[in-house]
Design a protein around this nucleic acid. Structure first.
Length: 562
RNA sequence: GUCCCCGUAGCUCAGGUGGAUAGAGCGACUGCCUCCUAAGCAGUAGGCCCCAGGUUCGAGUCCUGGCGGGGACACCA
């Protein structure tokens, strides 16, 4: 790439002046009239060299004047260097994009190393809600971004099938079961009020008959618990599959007890000498590692707090070889971050293990009013209901288009809108219309856009400002992808795609035959047409790859629902 | 009281390691289809970037202190 060559030349010049540790930028300016590339190096050198930045810039411009591929260099503003590249150099990126095809944007930052992304991790006590939906979308796309960046990614879902919540669920199902058999039985204190519990109870009745009608004992509760957890886990898996999210592994909290990991963790922590007894409980000195207060490991009644299986679980991640772990969780879990890390540090794991991405909650609005209620769940809107209403693609996109740390308002009216107002359709439509261009070319007896055409196309013919800007935008895709992956920020991809789609549409409209026949993609000039079809193919590839990272389909045609 | 996140256009939100005139979508207004899908494009209007200090050539961005909103602070999983 020419950017690297220019960057090196700038660095060399600085070294020549005795400054070899200078930090500067060389990137695409927001304003196209500022060239294809711009650098602030003269401004950063000014204080070191004690010279006016514009003088430095002038010297640099002269020095770099002969560099290949650079048409001209301008000194602008307070001392920026603006580089204008040869049209052939700019257009050359299109051939590279087409050659890379569905791999365009892939990188090697991960170098094949393993990384785990843990996300969703919902309790099997009810249907998934919108917070889980946001988390499912975030976790899945972060996983995809990491895969595109060369990591070997493992997707994991941890489910709490051991605690008091599950017991409460079993008690509620049992109560509903007996209600179905005509008994007057109240929902237990702290039980689950959703409709789904009745469904589970009636399925249980169908399978087991009246067997547990007068049995509220341990055996009945155990049977109920197994049954309900199975049903709900299946439902959660179905909802996730319908949302285009799959996991490599589901990890059970119960298994941490049955395979002795919890017990082993207690012993290992005791061996560190950082534990102590107090008021009948066993504590760990987590304050030693920056926690706000020490934590109880084993309660006075001999049972473990959730802290212990959490530590045991993360030790399992480490022991399975995952040195890189990203936990995607709701921000309501932020209180557990320090103590889990403290427990792990006590056992010798590195500070800051694992990495956490905490996201804010989701609210839904329709007609400007917040939507809260769902009959089936008892209170919250479920993910399945949302996907049913707007489709998986739209739901995914809306969950992803905001920064994870920012609260998300899901606007149902906008999500259901099939017009330009809806950013998902804007991006999809741009892709579809580019596909259509190539089809039309073939219908008219010309060559369509393919890699063969791209190789022989003279892309230096693409000189219109709208073309140049779009080409530069396409060339930046790998950089955006890399940044999105390393900062765990899927919304960066959404922003990039919307901007790209906007430039595609501008280019397309500017060349509309009724307005500017000369700028149309399907002009009679073979050479020019082929160059433009190559541009359209490269843009298609970028939009398709970007949507693939988001787990969203890139249609070749858009059919509007009426 | 302690900790985390947020505060940018009427609304919902973007704004790499500090850089040129702070952007997008929606909403409002004005144009553009005999001819590549108008599911689109072009343009206008709309801003004390919560406030006050500080760091420097330069701050929406970094530091400190406030104010406002949300969340977390259990021998609850």
């Amino acid at each position: 790439m020419h950017a690297e060559r220019i960057s090196e030349a700038l660095q060399e010049a600085a070294t020549g002046w005795g400054v070899d540790d200078i930090r500067f930028r060389l990137d695409r300016p927001k304003e196209p009239s500022h060239g294809d590339l711009a650098s602030n190096i003269a401004l950063t050198l000014a204080s070191r060299l004690k010279r006016p930045p514009r003088d430095i810039a002038g010297d640099l411009a002269e020095r770099l004047a002969g560099i290949a591929g650079v048409e001209r260099i301008e000194v602008a503003g307070p001392g920026f260097l603006n580089f204008f590249l040869d049209a052939g150099v700019v257009g050359g990126v299109l051939q590279r994009i087409v050659a890379a095809g569905s791999a365009y944007g892939r990188g090697e930052d991960g170098a094949g190393r393993r990384i785990m992304v843990e996300f969703v991790s919902a309790n099997p006590t009810g249907p998934l809600h919108l917070g889980h939906g946001r988390q499912a979308a975030l976790g899945d796309v972060i996983a995809r971004l990491l895969e595109w960046s060369g990591w070997n990614v493992h997707r994991e879902f941890y489910f709490n099938d051991a605690g008091r919540q599950i017991t409460r669920l079993a008690e509620t199902v049992l109560a509903r079961y007996r209600q179905l058999l005509g008994h007057d039985e109240p929902i237990p204190e702290g039980g689950y009020h959703g409709e789904y519990v009745v469904e589970i109870a009636s399925a249980f009745l169908e399978r087991e008959g009246r067997r547990y009608e007068n049995d509220g004992g341990e055996a009945a509760l155990a049977a109920m618990r197994h049954f309900a957890v199975d049903v709900l886990r299946d439902e959660q898996k179905r909802d996730l599959a319908g949302f285009n999210v799959r996991f490599d592994e589901y990890y059970s909290e119960r298994s941490l007890y049955s395979d002795g990991r919890v017990e082993a963790t207690i012993r290992a922590l005791e061996a560190t000498g950082l534990t102590y007894g107090h008021e009948g409980a066993l504590w760990l000195r987590t304050t030693r590692f920056g926690d706000q207060k020490d934590r109880v490991m084993v309660k006075g009644d001999g049972s473990a707090t959730y802290f212990l299986p959490d530590v045991a679980y993360h030790m399992s991640k480490w022991e399975r070889g995952f040195r890189e772990v990203v936990n995607v969780q709701g921000s309501d879990h932020h209180g557990t971050v320090d103590r889990v890390r403290a427990g792990l540090q006590a056992l010798g794991r590195p500070e800051g293990y694992p990495e956490y991405l905490l996201h804010q909650m989701v609210t839904v609005e329709r007609g400007g009013e917040e939507v809260r209620f769902s009959k089936r769940s008892g209170s919250y809107t479920t993910l399945a209901e949302l996907v049913d209403e707007v489709g998986a693609d739209v739901a995914r996109y809306f969950f992803l288009m905001r920064r994870p740390e920012a609260h998300l308002t899901f606007d149902l009216d906008l999500a259901l809108d099939q017009s330009d107002k809806n950013p998902v359709y804007k991006v999809k439509y741009a892709h579809a219309r580019l596909c259509r261009l190539s089809e039309l070319a073939r219908e008219r007896g010309w060559a369509g856009a393919d890699s063969g055409l791209a190789q022989r196309a003279d892309t230096s013919r693409l000189e219109a400002p709208t073309e140049r800007e779009l080409i530069n935008q396409l060339g930046e895709f790998p950089g955006f992808l890399r940044r999105a992956a390393s900062t765990r920020a899927p919304h960066v991809i959404c922003d990039y795609l919307e901007r790209t789609a906007g430039l595609v549409n501008t280019w397309y409209q500017t060349g509309h035959p009724t307005r500017n026949p000369g700028l149309s993609a399907l002009v009679g000039d073979d050479e020019l047409r082929n160059a433009r079809l190559t541009l359209s193919l490269a843009a298609r590839i970028v939009l398709r790859n970007g949507l693939a990272i988001l787990g969203i389909e890139a249609p070749e045609r858009m059919v509007r629902d009426e």
